[in-house]
Design a protein around this nucleic acid. Sequence first.
RNA 1: CGGCCAGUAGCGCAGUGGCUAGCGCACUUGGUUCGGGACCAAGGGGUCGGUGGUUCGAAUCCACUCUGGCCGACCA
Length: 576
Amino acid sequence: MRMSSMFSKTLREAPANADTKGYEYLVRAGYINQLSAGIFSLLPLGFRSVGKITKILREEMNALGDEEIQMPVVNSADIWKETGRFYSIDREMSRFKDRRDADMVLAMTHEECCTYLARQMIDSYKRMPLLVYQIQTKWRDDPRPRAGLIRVREFTMKDSYSFDRDVAGLEKVYKAHYDAYFRIFKRAGLPVVAVGSDSGMMGGKVSHEYMYLSPIGEDTIITCPECGYTANRQVARFRKSTQKEEMKALEIVETPGAKTIEGLSGFLKIRPEQTAKALFMVGTYIDDSDGTETQRLIIGVVRGDMDIEENKLQNAARCSSMRPAQEEEILAGGMVPGFGSPIGCKEDVVVIVDDAVAASTNLVAGANKEGFHYLNTNYGRDYSGTVADIAQAKEGYLCPVCGKPLKSSKGVEVGNIFQLGTRYSEAMNCFYQDENGERRPVVMGSYGIGVGRLLACLAEEYNDDKGLVLPLSVSPYDVHFIPLIKDANASDEVYSRLVSAGIDVLYDDRKESAGVKFADSDLIGIPLRLILGARSFAEGKIEAKFRSTGETRMLLLENLEEEVKALLAELSQVSA
RNA sequence: CGGCCAGUAGCGCAGUGGCUAGCGCACUUGGUUCGGGACCAAGGGGUCGGUGGUUCGAAUCCACUCUGGCCGACCA
């Protein structure tokens, strides 16, 4: 490609809203252009890089026996009503009506559509396993897109769906994707860790997220450096110490003004772990069949030395969304903010008790009376409720597996895999007959990778103070050819020789100074640069320079094609 | 959806009531340069986000609104 006719240009200054290096360089180098919040065009360079990424995706998916298809972006709402997600997903999914006044949605994922396909395709156990994928545009109306391509509203996703007759089959294909995803990220050059995660709105039990660990990440990842345990903080477990003693009689004490655990433990001269604290939320419960919403007050109880992980609380409470409760709502539930506990609360309150609280004895808890607490509260005797792990894991807490201290880091989710089970097949009547003629639901899995987000993470990972430094596997071009000689015919000839040899070349044929060309080349970040200068040209040579190391080599022009291919082979070794 | 900030040339910004709205980069033309963002000269480019108001006079003050960004809520 000749740069003189390329549909993009470089910028000397960063756009005002570029807050990370990777994003700044993608914009300045001309890979991407923002149209509005969370909506970007891919310019030629970005489009080519994405093409390199999707090539890797296709190769790895095809190798699993995954067949590529394309499902519609616009779905009739009917199938989304069948699974209930038409009602349970909030405004993140955009809806509209067609001319006949029928409900339509912009599909933000394709479980519904592919289940619709599968129920026509699959009638017998003999038809499975089946596996399809697509690489396609998704629209999710995120309330707050940010950080360039990291979190956007319109994006390209590779999403696969598996159909199996049983859980054993699902586990097998899940493992195959688990491994394939590591190969994909390895080939693209992005370091990732797989973490156990929450399956959120997707449903299902087992899921993993592939995280690129970086300070720009929005997810918090809990890891154990000792044994390798990793999990998203939303679901991360940890070892909780508990001590049991004989239950003592419930006793009410005056604790004026002690509305916080610090205040309370200071006042009573006890340790925070001898107390229980409460968090009040209002959960929305949606009836999947018709979208009817009901709201219920939820109280979560953890020991005073821990905090509540709201995601765990929401899962334990089995509601579809949650918000902090207002003071009046808490009072209406028979409890008092600041002095709250489930003791004496109204019947319809959802009580979720952390397992460490249930396993402890004689905790101090609120008396639901302004200025008073109970001594010696005990789960089971004084109050009841669902017991679950709802405490938030933190750095320094103990690993649930090996007991060593945990670490906390930030990460960007670049891929995820879910064992969906039969949630969608049962809801959408996707059944098959087994050998015994019995009707069984198809067991499904889904597997996603965000393509643009992957590019954004690569741009974060691979840059220096001059611009991008992309791995060959995802670089828009293999070679950046920069002639500095006046003889355009000679440089055109070098260019066409490279192109004929099947090498992807970006050719800086612009009438610019050497400095400008070098600076733009640094910014664009193609791994190998060929510089044709007057002196070396006279000697029948051309200079090759590696973007990442700055190392240069002189190549003989007569052996140009072979020598460049050898250097590219070297580069692909590095990233493999 | 709440809090805060910002919308002036393609990009980055200055201009806080008064002549024809400026600067840097980018762009055009001519000339000199030519291996790390060169220089000289001459140019082109603006409904100051929008609407309404205050005023003799508004980019500037007020109201509303739209858009973008940051923090939070939210989020596969």
